[in-house]
């Protein structure tokens, strides 16, 4: 059974269909990519999975559990984490606190414990800090640990956001353009992190990305969206050879006739 199963997702905004009968699946342990030209509905699809948007029709299941009735904040507990296309860090918090917020759902002490900082709160803060430090080491964020996130360079902020998503211990990680706006070295680092997360920590990854070099290199499975519909799906080699995909990205000879 596939880990993530999206079936016949239709999302409309006042009658305008952003997604139309989109179906695809992501297998456990894969790195899957969602690609397509601008406005194809990639981020909308990600928002449907993470709970920001509510599709009009269709089903989304994670490990066989229906996700759509769940509120966005409950989906994190079900094993979902995401990053955003534009940096969406908590700018007033330190890097460490950003990651600790990412662990919010794994900490389970109550408000009273919090008020008095007794027993359970104290113990679980220490316990979870240990895991957070592993993520900080993994992403090379130690020099920035206590700095305010809003003042860090762009590339570092992107890494902090990845770290925050990892802190929730996801089974499926949704990454919305993790390489956007990065230079070559930073892109390579990020690709390496994604591969490590997938191979060493066994986290399944669903990626939205425009950098085709990266997508084709690291993906096991690629889904191509165009005008809110699935154009093609398969291994990177299959997708590259697909005439519809080539037409969507490069145009086809008779493009001017069909009006695209």
């Amino acid at each position: 059974m596939a880990m993530l199963e999206a079936r016949d997702i239709t999302l409309t905004f006042r009658g305008l269909a952003a997604l139309l009968n989109v179906s695809f699946s992501v297998e456990q342990g894969q790195i899957a990519s969602l690609i397509g030209p601008n406005g194809a509905g990639k981020t909308s699809m990600l928002n449907c999975i993470s709970g920001r948007y509510h599709p009009d029709e269709g089903q989304i299941a994670l490990n066989g559990r229906d996700m759509l009735p769940m509120a966005a904040h409950d989906r994190v507990k079900a094993g979902l984490s995401r990053t955003f296309q534009n940096i969406a860090l908590f700018k007033g918090l330190s890097v460490l606190d950003n990651l600790m917020v990412g662990r919010h759902v794994r900490l389970d002490y109550g408000l009273l414990s919090s008020l008095f900082y007794w027993g359970k709160a104290r113990r679980s803060e220490d316990l979870h800090r240990r895991r957070i430090e592993e993520i900080i080491d993994f992403l090379g964020l130690s020099p920035h640990r206590h700095q305010v996130a809003g003042k860090l360079p762009y590339g570092v902020q992107k890494r902090v956001e990845l770290g925050r998503a990892l802190a929730g211990e996801p089974e499926l990680l949704l990454l919305d353009e993790p390489m956007a706006g990065m230079n070559l070295e930073e892109t390579e680092d990020m690709a390496r992190y994604i591969l490590d997360i997938n191979e060493e920590w066994g986290i399944t990854v669903l990626l939205v990305e425009h950098d085709m070099g990266v997508v084709m290199d690291i993906s096991d499975h690629v889904v191509v969206l165009d005008f809110g519909q699935v154009l093609a799906a398969g291994t990177p080699a299959q997708v590259q050879a697909d005439p519809d995909v080539i037409a969507a990205y490069l145009g086809s000879e008779n493009a001017s006739f069909i009006g695209r």
């Binding site: 969406a88 918090l93 600790m100 917020v101 919010h104 900490l107 900082y117 929730g168």
Partner: peptide, 28 residues
């Protein structure tokens, strides 16, 4: 005390970026 535990962090997260607060599992 609140401010150094998960509740305080969630409060600041809501202030700074309520959408990503929701996506890390904070019930707004």
């Amino acid at each position: 005390n609140i401010l150094r535990t998960r509740h305080g962090r969630a409060f600041v997260a809501i202030r700074d970026f309520h959408q990503s607060a929701e996506s890390v599992g904070v019930n707004l």
